[in-house]
Design a protein around this nucleic acid. Sequence first.
DNA 1: TATGAATGAGTTTTCATTCAT
DNA 2: AATGAATGAAAACTCATTCAT
Lengths: 198, 198, 198, 198
Amino acid sequence: MNEKRERTKQQILAAAIDVFHENGFQRTRISDIVAKAGVAQGTFYLHFQSKEQIFHHICSEFKVLFLSLLDDAADLFTGASIEAIREKLFVFIRELITLFTANYKMARLLFVEGNSNGGQFNGVYENIYAEFIERIGKHLLNGKNRGYLAFEDAETAATFLIGLFDSSLFYFMRVKNHFNIDKLSRRMTDFMLNGLSR
Amino acid sequence: MNEKRERTKQQILAAAIDVFHENGFQRTRISDIVAKAGVAQGTFYLHFQSKEQIFHHICSEFKVLFLSLLDDAADLFTGASIEAIREKLFVFIRELITLFTANYKMARLLFVEGNSNGGQFNGVYENIYAEFIERIGKHLLNGKNRGYLAFEDAETAATFLIGLFDSSLFYFMRVKNHFNIDKLSRRMTDFMLNGLSR
Amino acid sequence: MNEKRERTKQQILAAAIDVFHENGFQRTRISDIVAKAGVAQGTFYLHFQSKEQIFHHICSEFKVLFLSLLDDAADLFTGASIEAIREKLFVFIRELITLFTANYKMARLLFVEGNSNGGQFNGVYENIYAEFIERIGKHLLNGKNRGYLAFEDAETAATFLIGLFDSSLFYFMRVKNHFNIDKLSRRMTDFMLNGLSR
Amino acid sequence: MNEKRERTKQQILAAAIDVFHENGFQRTRISDIVAKAGVAQGTFYLHFQSKEQIFHHICSEFKVLFLSLLDDAADLFTGASIEAIREKLFVFIRELITLFTANYKMARLLFVEGNSNGGQFNGVYENIYAEFIERIGKHLLNGKNRGYLAFEDAETAATFLIGLFDSSLFYFMRVKNHFNIDKLSRRMTDFMLNGLSR
DNA sequence: TATGAATGAGTTTTCATTCAT
DNA sequence: AATGAATGAAAACTCATTCAT
C-alpha cells in the first residue's frame, strides 16, 4: 500500500519535472502534470501542497545532490604540483558536468527557471549560488596561498569560474544533443587554470 | 498631440520594464503596468497589442543597442601586438558592461527571463545568444590565425568567454549595489586572454 | 463483533455532533468527523450513507426525545386550578429545558442550523416546529375553554410561547456557561401564564 | 459612468439577497448571483471582494436600519400611564415588524442564517443581538422603576421579549403569505405587557 | 486619444465519495 | 469490518482583453 503510494508520488514528480522543463513553471498547469503522470487531479494534492511546493521539492532534491558533490571537493586547488591540481580540478568538473547532464531538467529548473520569474524562487537559487561561490572562493585562496594560482580577488575569480561553468554548460546541454563530457571538462579545466595563472 | 501620445507610450514602457523586472513576465499584470504608468487600463492597448508584444518590444530595444555594440567590435582580437589586443578587448568589455549596467533591467529581462519560461521567449534569447557566440567565435579565429590565441574549438572558446561574461556580470549586478566597472573589465580581460593562451 | 461495530458508529456520531456544532453543516468535512472519531475515511460510509444522512440521523435522534416529551404533556393547561396548571407547565418547561441543555449541540443543530441553510434541512425543522405549535395550540384551547387562559387566536398564542421558549433558551445556553434551570423555568412559566391572562 | 457602475452594484446586491435567501449562504454560488444579476462572473469581483464580504455588506445594511429604529425607542416603557406605555410599545413593535417584513430576506439573512453556519458569521449576529437585549433591558428597568413593570431580572425579561418577538415574527413571515401587522403588533404588545405585570 | 467598467475563459484547490487491499 | 489512496466534479477567483463613452 505504502509502496504504491510512493510510486504514485514518483510518477507525479517525474511528470512535473518534464512539464516544468517543457513549459516553465508559470505556464504548467496542475492538469498538465497529472495528465502526464496518469493520475487524477486530486491525487496531486495528496502528495504535494501546491505547484510552488513541488517546484521547491524538485529544486531541493537537486540541491542535495549538488551540495554533496561540493562537499567532496574540499581540497580542490590543493596538491603537490600544478599538474596534480589540474587533474583534481578536471575530475571535479567532470563529476559536476556528469551530474548536471544526468539531471539536466532538474538542474535547469534550479539554475535557470529559479533565477528568473521575478523573485518567486530566487531564495533557493541565490542561496545555492552563494554557497557555490563561497566554497570555490575558499578553495581558490588555498591555491593562491600555495603559489599555484594568481588573482586579485577570490570572489571575483570564483564568480568567473562558476559563471563560465554554468553558463557554458547550459548552453551546450541546450544546443547539442550529445557532447563529449571528457573533452569539455578538459577544455574547461585548462581555460580556468590558464585564466588564473600569471 | 503626437508628442503627448509618445510620452504616454514611454511612460508605459518604463513602467513595464520596472514591473517585469520586479515580478517576472508571468506575474506582472497589465493592471500593475498601467497603475505604475498612471494611465488607464485601456490605454495600454492603444500602444501595445498584448503583454507578449510589449515584452518583445523591450527585448528588441535592448537587442538593437547590444548588436550595434557587437558591430563596432568587428576587428576584435586583431591587433599589432597582444597588448594592443588586450586593450581593444578591455575597451569592448567595458563598453558592454557599461551598456548592461545602464540598462540592467532590460538586459536581465532578455538574458535571464528570456532564457527561462519554457520556451515562451526563447526565440529572442536564443537568437541573440547564438549571434553573440557566432561573432565572438569568428573574431577568436582571427586571433588564433594571427597566433595570438590558442584554443581547439572556436565555438567552445566563445561559449566560455560569453558564459563567463554574462553569468558573472549578472551576478555582480544583482548582489553588488555598485562595483568598479574598470576594475571588473580589466580582470575579465586578463582572465580571458590568459585562458586563451598556451 | 457487532458490539464493536456499534461502538465505531457511536464514535462517529459523537464526533459528527461535535464538529457540526463547531463548524456548521456545510463547513464540516467528512475528514474532520473521522479524524475526531479516530477512524478511517472509508469507515464513515460503512455506517452512514452521506453527510446529509448523518445530519438527518442526528436530528431525528433528538426529534424522538423531543416528541416523547411532548406526548407526555397531553393534559397541559388542564387542571383543577390555575395553580395546578402553573405547576404542570413549570414541570413541563423544566423537562424541556433539561432535555435541551443535556443535548445542547443536537438541539442547536435541529433548531438553528436546520432553520437556516436555504431549505436544505428545512423539512425536518419545519415539520417539528409545526408539530410543536399545533400541539401547544391544542393544549391552549383546552385552557381557554376551561376559562383559565385568555387569547384570541391559539396559533398566535402558541407561536408566542414557543418563540419565547426556544429563542431565549438558545440565547442563555449560548451566552451563559451555567444557569439555574429551576429559576429560568419558573420565570418562563410566570411570564407565559401572565401573558395569557386577561 | 459612475451612475451605471452603481446600478450594476445594486443589481448584484439585489440578486445576492435573493439567492442567499433561497439557497443559504454556503449553497449559493457566485455564478448564481451573477446569473440572476445579469452580469459576468468577473463583474462581481469589481464590486465585492468575496462571497463573505457581500454577505457582511448585506447584513450591515440591515443592521443600520435596525439600529436606527432602536435609537428612536429611547424612552420606551416611559410614560404617563400604563396605557401610554402600551401605545408607545405598540407603535415601536409595529415599526419593527414593518421594517422586518419590508426587508424580510435581509432580516432573515442576519437573524437566522447569521445565527447558524458554525460561527462563520456569528460575530455580526451576536453583536446585534447583544445590542438589542442590552437596550431593551435598560428600557425595561425604567418601566420597573416607575412601577409599571414587574420582573426579577432585566436581562431575562429582555430576552423573553426579544425571543418572543423575533422567533414568532419569523415564523409568521415564513408560513403566512400575508398577515395583519396591526393585529400581530397589538397581540404582541398585550402579551408582553401582561407577561411583565404582577 | 484616453478612460475604466465589463467580460469570460482559464486555473487552482477542495472534498464527498468510491474502491482495491 | 476497516483502511486510506485515489477520484473528479465543482467552485472561487484572476486577469488579459474588449468596448461603449
